[in-house]
């Protein structure tokens, strides 16, 4: 036990007096940027894909678009996110002649990846909205897209908010792999602290606690949001 308190002292020393905390803060910031911006991109992409996939498919164009979206979704759901990160960072973007930072690639890949997952969530959300809502919109002379945007999607989003919250938690946890492309995240920060002291027990323990706290805080936020939404169902 004396050994452990020595390790803790050691960690605190590096964390506070040797500026370890700045690295941790930077990692935390990057983690949150990737998760939040990734989620926003994901929601945008996911909504577009989901909408395309529920369009009636009488005509050729919707069918082609549907095929493309289907391919996109199966690509991003069918490969590990680490592989996607590596492919974008070392293969695709260099081939396209673009040089971007690890953080930018991470945001991009997390956005594209969550777009694929969110499109499925959003699709089930759209399908859960009573078809009568679309019919009523069309019957008063609104177009398909107008009705979709103003009537159906807002209701779909409300239905899937809890699931979107879970997707956000998943994103936060998955950011722990972005160091594969050199992005300074929480893992890299604590790994560095560990390397400096040749001691990993306490750093990784603290890292785990930070992840747990993050997830707890987000879950709490989701609960509060759900409760206020449920209230608005019965507002007078």
């Amino acid at each position: 036990m004396g050994n452990f308190s020595l390790k803790v002292e050691n960690f605190i020393n590096i964390f506070i007096h040797q500026n370890g905390y700045t690295r941790v803060l930077e990692g935390l910031r990057n983690t949150l940027i990737i998760a939040v911006v990734g989620l926003i991109i994901g929601i945008l992409i996911g909504t577009v894909i989901a909408t395309v996939r529920v369009i009636p498919k009488y005509k050729l164009l919707p069918r082609i678009l549907n095929g493309i979206c289907g391919f996109y979704v199966s690509m991003f759901r069918g490969t590990p996110i680490v592989v996607q990160l590596l492919v974008f960072y070392y293969v695709l973007l260099p081939l396209m002649g673009m040089r971007v930072s690890g953080l930018q690639v991470s945001v991009l890949v997390f956005g594209l990846n969550s777009g694929a997952y969110i499109s499925e969530i959003m699709r089930s959300g759209i399908l859960s909205v009573d078809t009568g809502q679309m019919e009523a919109g069309r019957a008063v002379g609104l177009g398909y897209w107008t009705t979709m945007l103003r009537i159906v999607i807002p209701q779909a989003v409300k239905n899937i908010l809890p699931t979107l919250g879970n997707e956000f938690i998943t994103l936060v946890k998955e950011t722990s792999v972005v160091s594969f492309v050199g992005t300074a995240d929480l893992y890299l920060a604590f790994n560095l602290i560990g390397s400096n002291s040749y001691e990993f027990m306490v750093p990784y323990l603290v890292m785990a606690i930070i992840y747990i706290l993050l997830v707890l805080i987000i879950s709490l936020g989701i609960k509060i949001m759900e409760r206020s939404l449920r209230k608005s169902d019965r507002r007078n």
Binding site: D130, G132, Q133, E135, A136, A139, V140, G141, I151, Q155
Partner: peptide, 21 residues
Amino acid sequence: INIHRRKMGMVFQHFNLFNNK
């Protein structure tokens, strides 16, 4: 068709009021 539907109202069995409005 949207132009013509403006002139043809429709009332449904299950009302279909917009729930989010």
